[in-house]
Every structure is written in C-alpha cells, then in structure tokens.
C-alpha cells in the first residue's frame, strides 16, 4: 500500500477513532465508576505511574453499581418507557400527517413538484430551536391557539396544552415532518402509474386500487420515514424541555439534568449506555430496510 493511500485512509480514520470511538470507551468506563467529590467528579481514575498494580486496582474498583441504581429508582424506568411511548405515538402521528402530504405531492403536476419539494425542505434548513420556540407562543395559555378557540367560542376556558405530552407530540411531529414526507414521496414518485390504470381497467375502484397498489408499494418509504422520526425522537432533549415542562418525562432530559444539575457523571453515563442499547434495535431494523431497498433498486 503506498503512502498516499495510507494518509487518505488514515486521517479520517484516526479522527473518528479519537473523537468518536474513544469517547464511547470513556462513557462506558465512567458508567462503571463511582461518584466522588473531586475533579473530575468520579473515582477511580487510572494512575499509570503505579504500573501494573495501578491498572489492577483500577479495574477492581469498577462495578455495575450505577446500573443497579437505575433499576432500583423508578424515575429511570418511567423515563425510558415514557420516551418510547412518546416517540412511538409521535411517529404514528407524523405518518398520519405526512403520508397525505407526500401523496398529494406525488400526484401534483410535474412542474409543481420541485417547488413543493423546496417547501418541504425549507423548514429543515431553518433552525430547529427556532421552530420549536415558535410553538411556545402558539400553545401557551394566553397563546394564539387558545385566543383563537376562545374567540370562535369552541371553548370557554383556555386549554392547558403547554407543559403536557400533547405539546411534545405537536413539537416532534412539526420538526420531524420533512423526514417522514421525503422518503414516502420518493417511493410514491417512482411508482409505475400503469399499475393503477391496469387495476382500474380490471374493475378495481379507485379507493381499492389505492389500498391494494399504492400503499403496499410505498411500504419501504413508510418504514424509512418512521425510523427517521422514531430514532431521533427517542433521545430528544430540546422539545421536551421547551414544550413538555415538568409534565413530561423523557430520557434525554433526564440525562441532561443528571449531568448539569446533579453533576452525577457516572449515572449520566449509565443512562446513556442503556439508551444506546435500546436504540440498537431500531437502528439495525432501519439498516435492514435500507439494504433491502438498495437490492430492489439494483
């Protein structure tokens, strides 16, 4: 192997090893340590000056205490379960909102499609934080939604939406909607239209042609979209902390508070490791779906 090729591979490889893989080793190690009143606030720290003895006593002091703590305190259980539930429900809602939009885009005249695409992508380039922030003014008790509903006379008392899981659902659906729309649109746009014509020629009604042809053919886009919403929603921090208030429990927020407010680094690391273990399953399923998709293309 020549020098040029070696540097080409070596530089990005080394960068990712040092700034991606090594940090994970450190998280794993700290999750097995104990909290201490020191800088850094955990023990043991590896002391290489004591040689072999130091390394042995270092490993001897590591234990699974933090993980046992996580199973004993029901705050963490409830946070993981509630994150799963919130991510799952928001994914279904995003699908319900996103599919009709993607379907409409695919049926639109072809000269309109680039503009519609741009309108879907534009929010994605806009600051995530600002898009979540925009909902505070809408959902709060004196917000625009309540003002509007009071004005129309549908309700007589302002609704409490802010600081409830409902606000978090709205926030997640709103911010991740482009991730749902784009893969579904991609599969619908590619679909062979003559299949629908054939079905109608053979006496299929339009709605049964939709359910028998369009929906099954859009399956891989739907699955991709669902994972693209579910995976980031599970570890979400910004949305539950701005819209969910104290009324919603999500693991990303628990990790943040454990770290910044309680300064319990070992427990924060253990929370992170378990979150990763939970995420491995949907990530592998997503990967499988993408591979199958590529095989179909090829």
């Amino acid at each position: 192997m020549n020098l040029g090729r070696r540097t080409l591979i070596g530089i990005p490889y080394l960068w990712l090893l040092l700034l991606f893989l090594v940090p994970f080793g450190i998280i794993l190690k700290i999750s097995l340590s104990d909290i201490a009143l020191a800088i850094p606030p955990y023990t043991p720290t590896l002391d290489l000056s004591e040689g072999w003895q130091g390394i042995r006593s270092f490993f001897a002091a590591l234990d699974f205490e933090n993980y046992i703590f996580l199973t004993e305190d029901d705050l963490y259980w409830r946070a993981y379960l509630s994150s799963l539930k919130i991510a799952f429900i928001s994914t279904l809602l995003a699908l319900a909102v996103g599919f009709p939009i993607a379907y409409g885009m695919a049926n639109a005249a072809s000269e309109w499609r680039p503009t519609l695409m741009m309108l879907v992508i534009l929010p994605f380039w806009t600051s995530f934080l600002i898009r979540v922030y925009a909902w505070i003014g809408i959902l709060s008790n004196e917000g625009f939604l309540n003002q509007f509903l009071l004005w129309t006379g549908i309700i007589s008392e302002p609704l409490q939406i802010m600081n409830t899981p409902t606000a978090v659902y709205i926030g997640i659906v709103y911010t991740y909607l482009p991730f749902m729309i784009l893969p579904i649109y991609a599969t619908l746009e590619r679909m062979d239209e003559s299949l629908l014509e054939a079905a109608e020629d053979l006496g299929c009604s339009r709605s049964s042609a939709f359910w028998l042809i369009t929906v099954p053919l859009s399956k891989s886009g739907v699955i991709a979209g669902c994972f693209l919403v579910f995976i980031p929603a599970l570890g979400e921090f910004v949305i539950p902390s701005l819209l969910g208030g104290s009324g919603t429990l999500m693991i990303g927020k628990v990790l943040w508070e454990e770290f910044f407010n309680n300064r319990d680094w070992p427990v924060a690391s253990a929370v992170a490791i378990i979150l990763l273990l939970i995420l491995v399953i949907p990530i592998i399923l997503f990967q499988k779906n993408q591979e199958k998709e590529q095989e179909v293309d090829a």
Binding site: P100, I101, G104, N107, A108, P123, I130, Y133, A134, L177
Partner: peptide
C-alpha cells in the same frame, strides 16, 4: 396521476401546519 380534492386539501393543510408558526413569529 389525478390531482384530487383530497390531495389539494392535504397539501394546503400540511403546508399551513409547516408555515403558520413561522409566519406568526
């Protein structure tokens, strides 16, 4: 491909949902 009333409605509602919060801001 036929662009139906259902398509038109879902596109208008969808884009309203995406853009109204930003317009209010």
């Amino acid at each position: 491909r036929r662009f139906t009333w259902f398509n038109a409605t879902s596109l208008s509602l969808g884009f309203a949902f995406l853009y109204i919060p930003m317009i209010i801001l």
